[in-house]
Simulated assay, not measured.
Amino acid sequence: MAEVKGLIAIGASTGGPRALQHILSQFPPSFPAALFVVQHMPHTFTRPFAERLNNLCALQVVEAVHGERVLGGKVYVSPGNRHLTVAQKGKDLRVALDDGNLVSGHKPSVDQLFLSFKSVRHLPVALVLLTGMGKDGANGMKQVKEANPAVVTLAQDASSCIVFGMPKAAIEAGCVDEVLPLASMADKIVEIVDGWDTEGGENLE
């Protein structure tokens, strides 16, 4: 793990655990981005889920802890009963967990995670929506894309989704750069990250 060179946020619901395992297990140990995952799942399952992914992936996968520093090559999985967001602390980004109300009918909410990237300008960002029921994530993706068109937005295609709800809502909102089958998603994310240089965006004062 090292200095973070970019941020990737992934949202998923029904069918998400298998899709996330497929994607995250393909990233190399030298992967320089930090990844944030919201999977709709009861809180008793998120820590074992993170531990399972950690055993299957080259990257370190953890259940997110409030206040910890964001590092490249690390995957932060939201606890199943708290919102996961990022917060700027000086020159560092920190994990922030919020015990607030449901957002878009969920806690954790993909919308809440995505919206926390709205003001990030010093690092490149990619937002990804995977298989899932409902619309969580579409509004957040749309707002972030409108605030910063440089943000890359991806959605899983209908043919590879268990439930084509969340990606479909984002596609219909007109905020998705590229729609991809699950089999191509990891390679696309690696390609995007490889294209990020160390500057990444506008440096914050």
Score class of each variant (00 low, 15 high):
148 N>V: 03
153 T>V: 03
203 N>Y: 12
177 D>M: 09
182 L>V: 11
139 N>V: 13
96 A>D: 11
75 V>R: 07
140 G>R: 00
91 K>Q: 14
90 G>N: 10
173 A>H: 09
42 P>H: 14
63 E>D: 03
65 V>H: 02
99 D>R: 07
71 L>H: 13
157 D>W: 11
132 G>K: 08
38 V>Y: 05
125 V>L: 00
111 D>P: 04
159 S>M: 06
111 D>V: 06
93 L>Y: 15
18 R>D: 15
161 C>I: 04
35 L>F: 05
35 L>N: 08
157 D>A: 06
47 R>A: 15
166 M>H: 01
172 E>P: 04
118 K>G: 03
64 A>I: 03
165 G>V: 00
121 R>D: 00
106 H>C: 10
27 F>K: 10
190 V>H: 04
190 V>P: 02
136 D>N: 03
167 P>E: 04
112 Q>N: 13
122 H>Y: 06
157 D>E: 12
180 L>V: 15
114 F>L: 03
9 A>P: 08
109 S>N: 00
18 R>T: 09
194 D>L: 10
169 A>V: 06
32 P>V: 05
19 A>G: 05
194 D>T: 04
7 L>K: 12
107 K>S: 10
100 G>Q: 13
134 G>F: 07
107 K>L: 08
108 P>K: 00
5 K>R: 15
74 K>W: 03
138 A>C: 00
84 L>E: 13
126 A>I: 00
185 M>W: 11
21 Q>I: 02
205 E>K: 10
174 G>E: 09
156 Q>P: 02
174 G>C: 12
57 C>L: 01
185 M>R: 08
153 T>M: 03
195 G>K: 11
57 C>D: 04
8 I>L: 14
17 P>E: 07
154 L>Y: 07
64 A>L: 01
177 D>R: 12
195 G>Q: 08
